[in-house]
Simulated scan of single mutants.
Amino acid sequence: MSNISHCNRDLGLLWWQGESPVPEARVDYEAFRQLYRDGALDNRKIQLDIPDGRSRLPLEIGGASGFGVNELVFRMEKFLKSQRMERMEITIADAKPILREIEMEKRLNLDQITKDAIMLAESDGIVFIDEIDKIVTNHETRYGADASSEGVQRDLLPIIEGSVVSTKYGNVNTDHILFICSGAFHSCKPSDMLAELQGRLPIRVELKGLGREDLYRILTEPETNIIRQQQLLMKTEDIHLVFTDDAIEELAKVAAEVNRSVDNIGARRLHTVVERVVEDISFHAPERSGETYTIDKESVQRAVGDFLKKADLSRFVL
């Protein structure tokens, strides 16, 4: 409460110096509190001691590992952060959120929060490992640095099997944590993984590629879809961009065709197609401020015509 007391002391000095609109010589804290709540004192400046956010220690020590070292560094950081204070002269309006945050932190039992978080992670935790195929190498083409991918798999094996993992918050037991792995497996197969790792990932699900309908939904259903992003981007240049429904269907159709004929990169293809359609408008946007552009099916076909031809030819390039 030292920060609050210091703040009250400074406010009291302002009161006794005759700067308060209330004429009483004695500090009437009730009236003073009302002035504070009404914002009448927001422009007054006070000196406030706040934790120095610049005094931080790294959470990890290079080359060191283990519960003891990480926990020691974490507690040292917490201790030093709580001891180092910085005195600043700020207005009461700016001091309010700072003091509110400091007092809220004091009311949090961080040790109990950490304990509950570890317990929830151990009992209900889910770990999703994406692009696991990047550490899997085809047995027929394994050579050189690619052989190190097997070492990464061996490092993951005990964690997925169930072990005690050291973190800066304490030890976490992974026995009951659900691990989900995913990958495209274009240049390898799931069977190329270590046999032990395959045994720890017993349920295998193969997903179908995104089709035309899926790509259309991606273009329309998310709140911040690619179409909406392009419209807001053009709005910064005072250009009103309108996509008709048949234009959006054509965008999805083109993306699906290119994925099928060249390389299936999923929804990422939509970025390429949409950028190709709005490329000319975006390039000349500063010169066309205030105009409205409507993109229909024919506009999409004209913009991506050459793109589709190049996609067809790419299948025959060695």
Rank of each mutant, 00 (worst) to 15 (best):
S2Q: 00
I4G: 00
I4A: 01
H6S: 13
C7M: 14
L11Y: 07
L11G: 00
W16V: 08
Q17I: 03
Q17S: 10
Q17P: 03
S20F: 13
V22N: 15
V22T: 14
P23H: 05
P23E: 10
D28C: 04
Y29L: 14
E30N: 11
F32D: 11
R33H: 12
Q34Y: 14
Q34K: 15
G39M: 05
A40W: 10
R44W: 15
L48I: 14
L48P: 09
I50M: 02
G53C: 14
G53V: 13
S55E: 09
P58S: 15
I61H: 10
G66L: 06
G66R: 06
F67H: 05
G68M: 04
V73I: 03
F74P: 00
F74S: 09
R75D: 03
M76L: 12
F79R: 15
L80S: 10
M85A: 11
R87T: 12
R87G: 03
T91A: 07
A93S: 13
I98G: 02
E103D: 15
N109R: 10
D111F: 02
Q112C: 03
D116W: 15
D116G: 10
M119L: 15
A121D: 14
S123R: 15
G125P: 12
I126N: 13
D130P: 11
R142E: 14
S148I: 11
S148D: 14
G151I: 13
P158E: 13
G162I: 09
S166H: 08
S166W: 02
T167I: 04
K168Y: 05
G170K: 02
G170T: 02
V172W: 03
N173W: 02
D175A: 00
L178S: 08
F179M: 09
F179I: 08
I180N: 01
I180D: 00
C181M: 10
C181W: 01
C181F: 10
F185S: 03
H186K: 11
P190M: 09
S191D: 11
A195M: 11
E196A: 11
L197K: 09
Q198M: 07
Q198S: 06
R200W: 03
R204L: 08
L207S: 12
K208W: 11
K208C: 14
R212W: 12
T220D: 04
E223Y: 12
N225I: 09
Q230P: 05
Q230I: 01
L233S: 08
K235H: 05
T236C: 11
D238A: 13
D238H: 12
L241M: 05
L241N: 04
V242S: 00
D246L: 06
I248Y: 05
E249I: 03
A255P: 13
V258N: 02
V258M: 04
R260T: 11
R260H: 06
V262H: 04
A267F: 07
A267V: 08
R268G: 12
R269L: 00
E275I: 05
R276D: 12
R276A: 13
R276T: 08
I281A: 04
S282P: 01
H284L: 05
H284K: 13
E287C: 03
E287V: 00
S289P: 07
E291H: 08
T292Y: 09
Y293V: 09
T294L: 05
I295W: 04
D296F: 04
A303D: 05
D306H: 07
F307T: 03
D312A: 15
R315W: 02
